[in-house]
Nucleic acid binder design. Structure first.
Length: 1143
RNA sequence: AGUCGCGUAGCUCAGUUGGUUAGAGCACCACACUGAUAAUGUGGGGGUCGGCAGUUCAAGUCUGCCCGCGACUACCA
């Protein structure tokens, strides 16, 4: 039975893909591919869960293509690659989506809508675009198990999270703490960094700023050398510190200096009160606060109120010499509590700069993240108040105003608050925007405070300052940095281990691992887990009211047991969590909030109302996707599911998913979570702008795939730039890939199919031994095997771009434009000989290997080609290319010498063609000879590819010229790489001397092998290896050269050559006419020609050739032709009649 | 603002340990070829290798500073 290779009318990638998709579906090919590798060594892959409440974009095609490539590749290499899909279902975007749909805000939750209903709504919408995602997955050919995905909102998933949190808790790494967070008083809610980075959130605002004078305590002068030595009047000594938020000054408890920054002690006068002062500030900033021209002016000439204020630098010192000096509280309204630490002294701060301000930073630990950090390190107390409920509070309440005295604890007020001073400001909003009774035109608290300081002689400079400041996207009002209670994971405790383990991870690109991720780890802060939200994983911690007793629940079973205890204690009446059927209950809010547990000492414990960061959800997926440790033992986990060999996501996940995976794995299992990670860059639009729905430049992945096909889209994205570079997405580029790669491959396949079908080639014959195959076959097979090695290596090193480019240049340059072009004749000419079989076998092998090599990147086209080939030959017992083994290179077939001489042949041909072009000699005009000057070795190499060159460039003979021949003129150039290190500075003169060599000098060094130069009085002996000699011209020939290769062409056209040219022209015209007349390739014809002398001579001499080429049975020349088919122009300046008929 | 990455032809990208005419594809122009024809070849135009300094005999390549773009981290006096 001789089945035919499938032939196509034209290339249609989308049709092919549709057909293949159906085939996969019918044959369950993905499952099959897993099944066949079952029991093999696993290659563990984690799917980063996308959120299905948004539509997929083109960048998802990018990320998923990368994932797919390596999973498919490893599958071909024999690994068992299980790929569980997943859905990220919690978190802020979901909630915001719901709020938008329902037209509510967070404040309405619990009022207009119950938490229960709200969460139900979230659950409903969270997978709203799942179908679209599934469609994308299928259409782009991403193989992942969609039937059994992990979903983060399930009770099982949450239970694993609780277990992990329990482990972390047991290790003492989970704690409750205070942190400064962006907070919107107007909205009454904390804001995530995500919310803060929304467009338009940062706006320039004009604030009143003040450089305040912090008075140094008088008794300090005895303790500090600087003060003792340089400050004349300690009662007038101040630190200068700048703030853009004067309302934080009453909360000041320290000043920070840069330990290595230079400071100066300056004697001068206060600009507002003209009182004499001695102040400290950074040396670099001296002249931003004092006019240079007033330096060292006579103090006695200064009169009160003068604008020009003289000053004098008394001394200089380093910041560290100032550390420890105490100062008087600037606004002594409220004292910090001693129990919380020291106050009002100078401390060191690593973040202090001298870019603006005074180089001395006012520290209010309750309102600045950096402030809080350095204060804590230096044991500085934050300024805390105690409210009626005995809770510590910052000076500002959650609505954005200073606490009223009556809201505070009475004992506390008596002890710490100066009521006289404070009452004037108590209740004031720190920004007018928070007070509904005020507008921007009203005096702000900041201004009032500045005026007060001015009157007290404690303000050095008051001015307006414009800076960018974040605003709440919901209320449009400025954000406050505010301390909030949060639960933290003490990641800083395992920092060293995180860094150590990170060094074992193979990052692509490496810089992301060492740089972005490495830096992130170096500057690690504790992980703030808390989110005051509704739809997410609840924090499984229950606490007594006083916070002294608490429990961290690690499983549903434990929860149920604790509830039982609680029922006994009378805090609860029923246990909804006792069922072993996880569908019977819900671990989400609000249900979980109604669980009240009992403490050791018998007190009720309520759940901490926080949810946990959704990033914990995704970082826990290696375990939660298997419901570890409840449905999966640690042994199973470590054997089959953890850690991952490979993950891939966008580079924006570095501090997201990559970090949480790494941290949880390190904390709980002391292991990396992934061994190899590819982080891809962004997909930008063709102009390099970020894609966004708002700008309307977002590319619809479905549109692209419908138009160009998934394979072309995938190939384009992978081959165009390295995955980690940003991709400027241009649809024209996809089209180029379609034409260039798939078009060429399609043409090559079609060519093969056309002739293989005619000849009935089904690869039935035994492989022709390699030694019996012609040079060109051995060459392409050598290149093919080299390609296998290189592509294998590229995939193995996670370099998909390299793999894609290697394949595509092989297909284009080697296979199509050289092998097939040069071998065309072998396929359509002559008998079904061993040479022809060799050609078929060789081309078949190439196509088969290309199908396999490219299958990870272009799964559809490669599949189609493989099936088309294999269904005729049945060489492989596989129904899909994705079920085959990755090709192994046969190193015996690799012949580097052959590869390089073929390259030389291509170069020679290209030179000859360029000579023909330059001299207007058509390739159809045969020429007598070319001449190549070269050594014996090169000559014997060229001899082996002689015939290829001759037929390609239509020349009769190659002549060689020994290099010593005196008809050659030569060029000589210094070999910089050899001479440079030897002679260094003399290089220039030597190079010049060499370039000035006469032909005789060149001959001399060639013959004697050395040459002595005299440069700058020194004798320099040159060896032959110190120079590069190339041939330039050959007397009497037309010559072209490239590198060290020179080719000369004999352009003489003899009478014989002319006749042959005519014969070839004639063949060409007849072929064209055959084609135009739609004759079949195998039809025999009769040709009648109008007589002409040269044509006649040509036809006589080349009759056999002409007839053979064109399947002409009779070639008749006669004076005139009846009914000519057309006219031809084979003879210069003549149009001759021709008539062609089938016979 | 800090950290990281990127910057080479109109566009998309290569460019080895520094070594002397900086390459390819696309696009454009011209010419050719044609039993693969929506393919192909040859030639041409097109470059201050982001800028400036430095190291070196020699810098697209190494160093520093600056500019532009992007990401991340912050928004801090």
């Amino acid at each position: 039975m001789s089945q035919k290779y499938r032939e196509y009318k034209q290339l249609n990638l989308t049709d092919i893909e549709k057909e293949i998709r159906e085939k996969w579906q019918k044959g369950n090919t993905f499952r099959q591919s897993l099944k066949e590798r079952e029991g093999n060594k696993p290659y563990i892959f984690f799917e980063g869960p996308p959120s299905a409440n948004g539509k997929p974009g083109i960048h998802h095609v990018m990320a998923r293509t990368i994932k797919d490539i390596f999973c498919r590749y490893k599958s071909l290499k024999g690994y068992y690659v299980s790929r569980k899909a997943g859905w990220d279902t919690h978190g802020l975007p979901v909630e915001l989506g719901v709020e938008k749909n329902l037209g509510i805000t967070k404040e309405d939750i619990g009022k207009k809508i119950s938490v229960d209903e709200y969460n139900a709504e979230c659950r409903k919408t969270v997978l709203q675009f799942k179908d679209l995602w599934d469609k994308l997955t299928e259409q782009m050919g991403y193989w992942v198990d969609l039937d059994d995905p992990y979903i983060t909102f399930t009770n099982e998933y949450i239970e694993t999270l609780w277990w992990l949190l329990g482990e972390i808790y047991k290790k003492g790494l989970l704690y409750k703490g205070y942190t400064i967070q962006p907070y919107s008083p107007a909205a009454g809610t904390g804001l995530s960094s995500h919310e803060l980075n929304m467009p338009g959130c940062y706006r320039d605002v004009k604030d009143t700023t003040v450089v305040a004078q912090f008075k140094i305590k008088e008794q300090q002068s005895k303790k500090n050398a600087i003060l003792t030595q340089y400050v004349k009047d300690i009662t007038k000594a101040y630190f200068l510190a700048w703030t853009t938020t004067p309302w934080t000054l009453p909360s000041n408890t320290a000043l920070a200096v840069g330990p290595n920054i230079d400071y100066v002690v300056v004697e001068s006068f206060n600009p507002y009160t003209s009182e004499p002062i001695t102040v400290f500030l950074a040396k670099n900033l001296l002249y931003s606060h004092f006019k240079k021209e007033n330096e060292n002016k006579d103090f006695s000439e200064y009169n009160k109120g003068d604008k020009e204020i003289p000053f004098k630098v008394l001394a200089e010192c380093k910041g560290k010499e100032l550390i420890g000096i105490e100062y008087e509280q600037l606004m002594p309204w409220i004292q910090p509590m001693e129990s919380e630490g020291e106050a009002f002294k100078v401390i060191g701060g690593d973040y202090v700069t001298t870019e603006d301000g005074t180089g001395i930073v006012h520290i209010a630990p309750t309102f600045g993240a950096d402030d809080a950090r350095v204060a804590k390190l230096a044991n500085i107390a934050p300024l805390h108040l105690l409210d009626k409920n005995e809770k510590t509070q910052p000076m500002v309440d959650k609505t954005g105003k200073f606490f009223l005295i009556e809201e505070l604890d009475e004992d506390y007020v008596n002890k710490y608050v100066n009521k006289e001073l404070y009452k004037e400001y108590a209740g004031r909003f720190v920004k007018n925007a928070y007070d509904s009774n005020l507008t921007d035109k009203d005096t702000s608290l900041d201004v009032d405070l500045c005026v007060m300081l001015k009157q007290q002689g404690l303000a050095f400079k008051i001015e307006k300052h414009t800076h960018s400041y974040p605003h709440c996207w919901r209320t449009d009002k400025p954000v406050l940095y505010y301390p909030l209670d949060s639960w933290f994971i003490r990641t800083t405790a395992i920092k060293d281990r995180l860094i150590e383990l990170n060094k074992t991870i193979n990052w692509k690109p490496q810089a992301t691992g060492t740089g972005r991720f490495g830096n992130w780890l170096e500057n690690l802060v504790d992980w703030n887990l808390s989110r005051s939200r509704y739809w997410g994983t609840p924090l499984p911690i229950w606490r007594t009211e006083d916070g002294k007793e608490e429990i961290c629940i690690s499983s549903v079973k434990q929860l149920s047991e604790e509830i039982e205890k609680s029922i006994k204690a009378g805090f609860m009446t029923e246990n909804k969590y006792s069922s072993s059927n996880y569908d019977d209950f819900d671990l989400h809010r609000p249900y979980i909030d109604s669980v009240i547990l009992v403490s050791q000492s018998g007190k009720p414990m309520k759940r901490e109302t926080d949810l946990i960061d959704v990033w914990f959800d995704s970082g826990a997926m290696p375990y939660a996707q298997r419901h570890f440790p409840f449905d999966c033992t640690e042994e199973e986990l470590k054997q089959h599911f953890f850690p991952a060999d490979f993950i891939a996501e966008g580079v924006d996940q570095t501090r997201g998913w990559f970090f949480t995976l790494h941290t949880i794995a390190t904390m709980v299992f002391d292991s990396v979570a992934f061994k190899n990670v590819v982080s891809n860059g962004l997909v930008l639009d063709k102009n390099g702008n970020k894609m966004s729905k708002r700008l309307g430049n977002a590319v619809d992945p479905f549109e692209m795939m419908n138009k160009y096909g998934a394979d072309a889209t995938r190939w384009y994205m992978i081959s165009n730039s390295q995955p980690w570079d940003n991709l400027k997405f241009d649809p024209d580029g996809i089209d180029e890939v379609r034409r260039k790669l798939f078009g060429t491959l399609y043409n090559t396949y079609s060519f093969f199919a056309l002739y293989a079908n005619i000849d009935g080639f089904c690869y039935k014959e035994k492989d022709i031994p390699i030694a019996e195959r012609p040079e060109i076959d051995r060459w392409i097979l050598s290149e093919l095997n080299t390609l296998i090695i290189n592509v294998d290596k590229a995939f193995n090193e996670y370099e998909p771009t390299r793999a894609a480019r290697l394949i595509s240049s092989f297909v284009d340059e080697y296979l199509s434009n050289w092998y097939v072009r040069l071998c065309r004749r072998r396929f359509w000419k002559g008998e079904y000989s061993s040479d022809k079989i060799s050609a078929y076998q060789t081309l078949y092998r190439c196509l088969e290997v290309i199908a396999k090599l490219s299958s990870p990147i272009a799964p559809f086209f490669s599949e189609n080609m493989f099936i088309n080939l294999n269904s005729v030959t049945n060489r492989e017992n596989h129904s899909s290319v994705h079920l085959t083994d990755f090709p192994t290179a046969d190193e015996n077939l690799i012949d580097k010498a052959l590869e390089s001489r073929m390259q030389m042949a291509q170069k020679i041909c290209s030179l000859v063609l360029s000579l023909r072009k330059r001299h207007n000699l058509k390739v159809r005009q045969p020429l007598a000879s070319i001449m190549i000057p070269c050594d014996d070795k090169t000559q014997s190499e060229i001899e082996k590819v002689r015939n290829l060159i001759l037929s390609e460039v239509n020349v009769k003979e190659i002549k060689y010229l020994s290099l010593q021949n005196n008809v050659l003129s030569k060029n000589i150039k210094a070999n910089f790489k050899v001479l440079g290190p030897k002679y260094g500075p003399m290089m220039k003169s030597i190079a010049k001397a060499i370039s000035e060599f006469a032909q005789s000098d060149i001959a001399k060094i060639e013959i004697e092998g050395k040459y002595t130069l005299n440069i700058e009085g020194k004798e320099i002996e040159l060896a032959l290896t110190d120079v590069e000699i190339t041939t330039k011209d050959i007397e009497g020939w037309v010559v072209a050269n490239e590198g060290n290769l020179t080719v000369a062409l004999d352009v003489t056209i003899t009478e014989d050559l002319k006749k042959e040219a005519v014969a070839r022209e004639l063949v060409n015209r007849i072929q064209n006419i055959r084609k135009d007349s739609n004759f079949d390739v195998t039809d025999n014809i009769i040709v009648e020609l109008q007589e002409e002398d040269l044509l006649k001579a040509s036809c006589e001499q080349y009759k056999d050739y002409i007839c053979n080429e064109t399947l002409t049975r009779e070639l008749i020349l006669k004076p005139s032709i009846d009914n000519p088919t057309t006219q031809i122009d084979v003879i210069e300046d003549r149009q001759l009649d021709i008539r062609i008929t089938k016979c």
